[in-house]
Simulated scan of single mutants.
Amino acid sequence: MSRVFGDPVNVWVDETGRPTRFIWREQLHPVRRVLEHWVATRDWWRRRDPDADDHGEREFWRVEASAGDSIMICELRFDAATRSWLLSRVWD
């Protein structure tokens, strides 16, 4: 079962852009491994500014992270337009 959050998170990435750790609910979560990675493009015709250099990409990372003494599987989302990260989903 998964839960949807959409909570903003602070994420550190390595030189290739892979998340290495993040802070969620004031707790540091080291990323143990990346399980999946994909990029989705928003509908280009729905952009507010057609002249903007924004491709509307959202990058998703499904990762295994440490959560204290336990492990959690979660989905991090990077929004290229806003340059922000969200914790979008967590699996039990």
Rank of each mutant, 00 (worst) to 15 (best):
R47K: 15
E64L: 10
W44C: 11
R62E: 10
A40N: 12
D92L: 14
R18D: 14
E36R: 09
M1K: 15
R89N: 07
V63R: 09
D51P: 03
L28W: 01
D79H: 02
T82F: 09
R48T: 12
A65G: 01
R62F: 10
A65Q: 01
D92S: 14
D54G: 09
A40S: 09
E15H: 11
S84D: 10
F5G: 01
C74Q: 04
D49I: 02
L28R: 13
E26V: 00
P30N: 09
D43F: 04
E15A: 13
D69N: 10
R58A: 07
V90P: 02
T82G: 06
L76H: 03
L76S: 00
L28C: 04
I23N: 14
D54C: 13
D49Y: 09
M72V: 12
R3E: 12
C74K: 01
D54I: 08
W91N: 10
S66E: 11
S84A: 14
T82Y: 11
F60S: 07
C74W: 01
Q27T: 15
F5I: 07
W45P: 00
P50C: 07
R46D: 13
S66P: 02
W91F: 08
I71A: 13
E26K: 08
C74G: 03
F5V: 03
L86Y: 06
R62Q: 11
E36I: 03
T41P: 00
D14T: 05
V90L: 07
R46N: 12
D14W: 11
W12E: 14
W85G: 00
T16Y: 10
V39R: 03
L76F: 04
A81I: 00
D69V: 10
R58C: 13
R77E: 15
Q27V: 13
L86G: 02
H29T: 04
W12Q: 12
V34R: 14
A52I: 07
F60P: 05
E75K: 08
I71C: 13
T82E: 13
L35Q: 13
R58F: 03
A67V: 02
D7A: 07
W38I: 00
R3K: 08
W12P: 01
S70E: 12
V13S: 10
R77K: 14
S84W: 01
R48P: 06
V13P: 00
I71D: 13
V34P: 07
V11C: 00
S66F: 11
L86A: 07
L86P: 06
E59R: 15
A40I: 12
R42E: 05
R33N: 07
H55K: 07
S88H: 02
A80Y: 02
F5D: 07
L76D: 02
G17Y: 08
E36V: 03
P8F: 03
A40P: 00
I23P: 00
H55N: 08
L35P: 10
D54P: 14
L87F: 03
P50I: 04
L86N: 04
S2E: 14
P50A: 09
M1Q: 15
R83W: 02
E75N: 08
V63Y: 05
R47V: 03
R48N: 15
R42C: 04
R83N: 14
